[in-house]
Design a binder for these strands. Structure first.
Length: 793
DNA sequence: GCACCTCGAGTTCC
DNA sequence: CTCGAGGTGC
């Protein structure tokens, strides 16, 4: 392609994006991509001036002006500032040393003072006040003249229509109109509710809003504003420094961002850059960097301008949080529960400070909703959270003939059918533990830190152990020998093409195997709750496992407990109780557990709190959970009053010798007090043998539990017991787990998220959104020292 | 029956 | 960290 053709192509594409961005308010590419195209064209034109065309988009800053807005000539041009290309915090040094050399300062001279501010991601606006009254607002436009958007700007509530105090004859204020993230979310939510298109990001929201021809439409999109500089002034006593200018603007009633500082030298700039970087995600608005300005206005004047850019200011950006890349493939992963998760394999792209190559697509409906296809160009984000996300597809860049993505119908690992339960979003491999992927994940889970905590047994070795069939069930872990491990490692290394082993490596390998065997052996006596969690029962996570262990006390009881018994426990409803009972009833699982016990695994149980459990085990409660139709709570109570024992109830339903087996069951006198329809349901339920057996089992288990309960164990009252804590950030001396153990050992609870019911939020350094939530809800926030004080009380 | 609160499960990168 | 979904209290 000739250079002229390339330039023409770039111009055409940039114009198209401009139109989409500014006129249609529907951006087609992320800003970073637009910038790249723009810079390429600029460079091309700079290198080859003969290509420069009068109508090139580079000749206008800010895109095609809409004809409907009146043009306004700026009294003082609105210039843009240079950007420091080094995105590291230390990049601030370049600016400082540049300024120092321009000012002719030596190392012996004192540090230069700077005003450090945020670089907002919005739309630059010039406000003109005459004698304290807002008379005009204009966009930047090409810097020389912009558009008159006074009507729209008047709808921005933060912008005063009258200045406070002594207003000068003329005061032009420059600042950024932006859309805050909460406003952006709210607006989009409303749009979605009404089936209207949502905004892609707050920045486009701001640009689009200001450029609405109808001020009413603009008002519907709430904008905010921060002042950061001056245009023309007359009759104003100009302060000596930029920092003081901002203070003065604030006094006049203009919104000025509080995140600003006057700092000294490169070190001050670097510290500011780093401080804001940490704050960036928690700000209620988007920034793309920070801005450094020489604080003294006199020095600013001395430094002056080069090619219409001030030498006394620089923008220092953070890594872009949105980038374009292509989808090279869409693979699926098989999780512990068989969940099939599509994952986009991306061409590596640097976004938000790291190189991203994978992004989860969560599930089939997500892929279809975003319509991601192999070969697509996609926008990737790493905002707020750490996890990369495919935001949207750039449909117009899709190669022709690209087929829509379809989830495989069979598991890529074991070829079992992929099924989707009605009403569920996730598709699952139906292979169960016959699927190698599920087996690996199950064992990985079992060995994990919060479960059996087998140190040194990570995914690499587990995969190999399963691949070579050393381990099929978790119990096999406890039968591994030194030779098994060494052989496995040798075969694994061989397969990975690792060099043949030397004597020294042999010793190292033996040491490794011995250590691993030791940590496997050390895992044999886990607390019961961890053991239950390790089993990987559906719906049983860390906290449900703890409930089971705390209330029922021993594996023997739990594995035989019928669902209605489980349902009397807190946080366990029909679904979870069913899942637990089904798990233990499955012969496969029972066998696996027996094997574990035979291999010497002995979970350490808890003694249940006597009085509370006994109360829960009242027959009226148990009856209510039998899922007999029409047997409401009230009627379960009546039934319990008549037949206060499950095994007696079971026998009522059994045909007695001499009964006519073909006649309809006769309502026994005892339960005759219930309405006939209910009696019918009860008898119908009792006619199933498995239900009668379950009742008998329930009865026996209840007897056993009540008999083995230690007599009324009291819970010590402390400042912690019964209180709910939420941990956030890093504590100075305690790890998260240590703090959790300490709180739980004193009867407190540690929850994952903050709500009204949270008693304390324990915040350390780098506390995240949970701290904000706590402040918002007025939940007391304490630090580690205060936590320790509570623990000691 | 609904709203709110939790928990479970899956995921990425260093 | 987020989403989905289960549990519970109003």
């Amino acid at each position: 392609m000739s250079l002229a053709a390339r330039a023409a192509a770039l111009r055409a594409e940039i114009e198209r994006h401009n139109r989409a961005y500014y006129v249609l308010d529907a951006p087609t590419v992320p800003d970073a991509e637009y910038d790249r195209l723009f810079r390429e064209l600029q460079q091309l034109e700079a290198d080859h001036p003969e290509l420069l065309a009068a109508d090139s988009p580079t000749r206008r800053v800010g895109g095609a002006p809409l004809p409907e807005f009146a043009q306004v000539r700026h009294a003082l041009p609105m210039l843009s500032i240079r950007t420091e290309t080094d995105t590291e915090a230390s990049g601030a040094r370049n600016f400082d040393s540049g300024v120092r050399s321009l000012l002719g300062l030596s190392d012996a001279d004192p540090e230069v003072e700077y005003s450090a501010e945020l670089k907002f991601d919005g739309l630059a606006i010039n406000l003109r006040y005459e004698h304290g009254v807002l008379v005009q607002a204009a966009t930047r436009g090409d810097g020389e003249s912009g558009e008159d958007v006074t009507q729209n700007v008047r709808t921005i509530r933060q912008i005063p229509l009258h200045l406070q105090g002594d207003a000068p004859a003329v005061l032009e204020v420059r600042g950024e109109a932006y859309m805050s993230r909460p406003d952006f979310e709210r607006y989009n939510e409303r749009q979605r509710e009404q089936g209207k298109p949502a905004l892609v990001n707050p920045r486009n929201g701001a640009a689009g809003s200001i450029r609405q021809l109808d001020p009413a439409l603009c008002a519907a999109r709430p904008l905010s504003f921060f002042a950061y500089g001056l245009g023309e002034t007359a009759g104003w006593h100009l302060p000596a420094t930029h920092g003081a200018v901002l203070d003065a603007l604030h006094k006049l009633g203009l919104p000025v961002c509080e995140h600003r500082a006057v700092v000294c030298g490169a070190a001050g700039l670097i510290a500011f850059h780093a401080r804001i970087a940490a704050l960036r995600d928690s700000l209620p608005f988007d920034i793309d960097g920070v801005v450094y300005k020489v604080n003294s206005l006199a020095l600013q004047q001395e430094l002056g301008f080069v090619t219409r850019r001030p030498r006394w200011a620089v923008a220092h950006k953070y890594p872009a949080q949105e980038m374009l890349t292509t989808v090279e493939a869409i693979d699926v992963q098989v999780g512990r529960t068989g969940a099939i998760t599509p994952v986009a394999r991306l061409a590596p792209v640097f976004v938000g400070g790291v190189t991203v190559t994978n992004a989860t697509l969560h599930n089939e409906s997500e892929v279809l909703r975003k319509d991601v296809r192999v070969g697509d160009t996609v926008i990737v984000r790493r905002a707020g959270d750490v996890i990369p996300e495919v935001v949207a597809v750039v449909v117009e860049r899709r190669p022709p003939g690209t087929p829509p993505y379809a989830l495989p119908e069979r598991c890529p690992i074991c070829d079992s059918h992929v099924v989707r339960e009605p009403g569920e979003v996730v598709a699952r491999c139906s292979g169960g533990l016959a699927c190698r992927a599920q087996r690996v994940q199950a064992i990985l889970h079992f060995a994990g830190r919060r479960m059996m905590d087998i140190e040194g047994l990570g995914d690499r070795y587990i995969e190999r152990l399963v691949e070579f069939d050393y381990v099929v069930r978790v119990a096999d872990l406890y039968r591994l020998t030194l030779d098994d491990l060494l052989e496995m490692k040798r075969r694994a290394d061989e397969k990975d093409g690792i060099t043949p082993e030397t004597v020294k490596q042999g010793q190292i390998a033996t040491q490794w195997a011995e250590n691993l065997l030791a940590s496997i052996a050390a895992s044999k006596t886990p607390p019961l709750a961890r053991f239950l969690f390790a089993l990987g029962i559906r719906h049983v996570g860390e906290s449900t496992a703890k409930v089971l262990a705390d209330w029922l006390g021993s594996l023997a009881v739990i594995r035989r407990a019928p669902a209605p018994l489980l349902r009397v426990l807190p946080d366990i409803g029909a679904t979870v109780a069913e899942a637990i009972a089904d798990f233990f009833a499955e012969p496969h699982n029972a066998e696996a557990i027996d094997q574990l016990l035979a291999a010497g695994v002995a979970p350490v149980g808890e003694h249940p709190p006597a009085a509370k459990l006994a109360l829960q085990l009242a027959w009226e409660r148990l009856y209510a959970h039998l899922d007999i139709p029409r047997l409401t709570e009230v009627r379960a109570r009546q039934l319990a009053a008549a037949v206060p024992d499950g095994s007696a109830l079971a026998h009522l339903g059994q045909p007695q010798i001499g009964d006519d087996l073909f006649a309809a069951p006769v309502a026994p006198a005892e339960i005759g007090t219930l309405p006939p329809t209910v009696v019918g349901e009860v008898l119908g339920w009792l006619s199933h043998e498995e239900n009668r057996n379950m009742l008998i089992r329930l009865s026996a288990m209840r007897e056993d539990l009540l008999a083995t309960l230690p007599a009324g164990r009291e819970v010590n009252e402390t400042a912690i017991a019964g209180k709910t804590f939420v941990l956030t950030g890093a504590l100075p001396t305690l790890s998260r787990d240590e703090a959790k153990d300490l709180i739980e050992s004193r009867g407190g609870k540690v929850a994952g998220s903050v709500s009204k019911k949270t008693h304390y939020v324990v915040a350390g350094t780098d506390a995240g959104s949970k701290l904000e939530k706590a402040l918002e809800l007025g939940v007391p926030v304490i630090d580690e020292t205060q936590l320790r004080e509570l623990l000691e009380q």
